[in-house]
């Protein structure tokens, strides 16, 4: 059982939902990323997603893309990111997963990547450009090393394919709310709740919803049908302020924003 499996088991037993923030590693530097991760854990996030900057992120919208570009301009390397997560995990119980391109995983070697990530306190990976058809080799390594390989289902995924993806996924299933790239949306698609409810009937795996989620109303709307919600661009956009504002202030802003979203989760009051 990976740390992710254990987390969702606990949350379900308590009738709670996961709040999962996404942060870009190394924007503007890894010390700040570490500070943000600490803050997010303290504010009650269940699990944090670390984005490994990539030069050609075709699934990402302008906000995350720009954060990747800034991080890469500062020459952030995978090894340094993992050193940072190891340091953070020494003082934090909040599990981590990574969002990383297969270009990076392949270049480091599948087994080497998973081994190092796991040793650095990361419990699983979301590899957005690795389709279920191409994932057998990495899935085998992940299974052997008890590392979650979280797969994605989107609004354009046919239903039988969605079932196949759910069967291959471990840790949780990532439901992409919109057909498109990452980024904040004012409104979420009307058929979203129905699609997730259908998927809920097909698998016992926890389902977390991401892409486009940014407002407390979204969280309140999605949490009842899912096991968790994922928020990325809205946090990355706030973190980018660190370039022009005092870091303590940015940390407080990110923390307050995240707290406002967590408060919209069912069962949040009970926890507080």
């Amino acid at each position: 059982m990976s740390e992710i499996d254990a987390l969702f088991k606990t949350l379900r037993a308590q009738g709670r939902k996961a709040f999962i923030p996404f942060v870009t590693a190394g924007d503007p530097d890894l010390d700040f990323t570490a500070a943000v991760l600490q803050e997010l854990g303290q504010r009650g996030c269940s699990l944090c997603e670390i984005g490994v900057p990539y030069s050609d992120p075709i699934a990402d919208g302008p906000v995350i893309q720009a954060s990747y570009t800034r991080a890469l301009e500062h020459k952030v390397k995978l090894h340094d990111i993992l050193t940072m997560t190891r340091r953070v995990r020494a003082q934090s119980e909040t599990p981590l997963v990574t969002m990383v391109s297969y270009a990076i995983v392949y270049r480091h070697g599948l087994e080497a990547f998973v081994t190092e990530a796991k040793a650095s306190g990361i419990a699983g990976a979301i590899v957005p450009d690795l389709l279920v058809e191409e994932s057998a080799a990495l899935a085998e390594v992940c299974r052997r090393l008890d590392f979650s390989l979280i797969q994605l289902v989107t609004p354009t995924t046919p239903r039988e394919r969605a079932v196949r993806i759910a069967e291959a996924s471990t840790g949780f299933l990532y439901y992409v709310s919109v057909a498109g790239i990452t980024g904040e949306r004012r409104e979420l698609p009307p058929q979203l709740l129905e699609n997730v409810a259908w998927l809920r009937q097909q698998t016992d795996l926890p389902i977390c919803i991401g892409f486009g989620v940014s407002q407390p109303e979204h969280v309140a709307q999605l949490a009842p049908v899912a096991d968790g919600v994922i928020v990325g661009s809205a946090i990355v956009r706030r973190m980018a302020e660190a370039a022009v504002k005092p870091r303590a202030q940015v940390l407080a802003d990110v923390g307050a924003y995240v707290e406002s979203l967590i408060a919209a989760l069912p069962g949040a009051a009970a926890k507080a």
């Binding site: 690795l130 389709l131 989107t154 354009t156 046919p158 992409v176 498109g180």
Partner: peptide, 9 residues
């Protein structure tokens, strides 16, 4: 084929 799931369709 190494693309986001959205494009598979």
């Amino acid at each position: 084929r190494y693309v986001p799931e959205t494009l598979t369709y």
